Computed example of a mutant assay.
Amino acid sequence: MKAVRIHEYRTPPSLDEIPQPDLHGHHDVIVRIGGAGVCRTDLHVVDGWFENIMRPERPFTLGHENAGWVEAVGDAVTSVHVGDPVIVHPLATCGVCGACRQGEDMYCTASTFPGVTVDGGYAEYLCTSERSLVLLPPGVEPAQVAPHADAGITAYRAVRKVSEVLQPGQTAVVIGVGGLGHIGLQLLSEMTPARIVAVDKSQLGRDLASKVGAEAIFGTEDAIDGVAELTGGLGADVVIDFVAEHDTPDRALRMLRQGGTYSIVGYGADLHIPTVEMVLKEITVLGNLVGNYADLDGLMKLVVNGRVQLETRDYPLDAAAQALDDLENGRIQGRAVLTPA
């Protein structure tokens, strides 16, 4: 089969011909890929960010936002059948550790992370676990929803957490209206009563924010003053940062009111907060990992009912390098999706 693989860090991935994956465990499932989302994390993987953290064995296949059809199942699999359309939670988990027992799949002590630590879905086929699969209803094409396997559930988890504090009349700011941010904006509308503000440095992102229903939209340079004016000088109650690179965290904190919550989804920058500011402003800082299985299931119910829409752009598998370059250089509105077929 064809697969887009990392051989050396900080060099473009290559399109290789490799064997189709086999079933090894009783609960393994082979998925024929219909769509694989292209994520900023993939850029970080290519650049070697996880080389000394997760230590994957190279070469390996990129791709952790996957959806497709069940191709083959292990002898103990009962929840899916050959031909079923599925979306794949990005982690393959053990099911028996303390974290799995509590439903927090992404804390699993024995997980694998396709596309980051083992072969992922920038390919024609993927091997994963039965535990990772959510069935898609008839009429939902896997390529249409593949990015929800990470972008969607990460945004869902972040919004679910802040939905516990947001009240009517309060203000939530989304920084970065890309693949995750445009989902986050829609989820804030669905799951909270807050006024929703979008901030993006590009016209492409601001146009997308308008399309998905942001009530106020600012560029990066005028966001601090704009949010202050909008809130009568108080600041935002919640800022969800889908970027968190360069000076974005500092700008986010300056938009925040006393008692507000800074929710971090993106990564790359360092966070510097004087302890006196933490105390006097009594702010909360939240980190957000990828969502758990329940988050994916809940999100897909919203998607199936037409409550959350994805803005996507399809690329053939052999154009993966172009898709990654377009993502890195801000030429994609929403999310890129690789389609092997």
Rank of each mutant, 00 (worst) to 15 (best):
A3N: 08
R5P: 06
H7R: 15
E8R: 15
Y9M: 10
P12V: 09
L15E: 06
Q20M: 14
D22V: 11
L23I: 15
L23C: 08
V38K: 00
C39M: 11
T41W: 01
D42A: 12
V45M: 04
E51G: 01
N52R: 12
I53D: 07
R55E: 07
T61C: 11
G68W: 03
W69H: 08
V70M: 10
D75L: 13
A76W: 02
V77Q: 06
V80R: 13
H81W: 06
V82R: 11
A92V: 14
T93V: 15
G98D: 12
R101K: 12
Q102L: 12
F113V: 14
F113Y: 15
P114D: 13
T128A: 09
V134C: 11
L135G: 04
P137K: 06
P137V: 04
P138S: 05
V140Y: 00
V140T: 08
Q144N: 06
A149S: 04
D150F: 03
D150A: 07
I153K: 04
I153N: 01
A155S: 15
R157I: 07
E164R: 11
G169M: 05
V173W: 02
I183V: 15
L188Q: 07
E190L: 15
P193A: 07
P193G: 10
R195D: 09
R195E: 11
D200G: 04
S202M: 12
A209Q: 07
A209I: 06
K211Q: 13
F218I: 09
T220E: 09
T220N: 04
D225R: 11
V227T: 02
A228M: 14
E229W: 14
L230V: 06
G232C: 12
G233H: 14
L234T: 08
A236S: 12
A236P: 08
V238Q: 04
A244E: 01
E245H: 14
D250G: 08
L253F: 04
G259V: 08
G266E: 02
G268W: 02
G268T: 02
A269W: 10
T284R: 15
V285G: 05
V285L: 11
V285E: 05
L286I: 09
L286Q: 03
L289T: 09
A294W: 03
L302P: 01
V308C: 04
L310P: 02
L310M: 11
D314K: 04
D318M: 12
Q322A: 12
N329S: 07
V337K: 00
V337Y: 00
P340D: 11
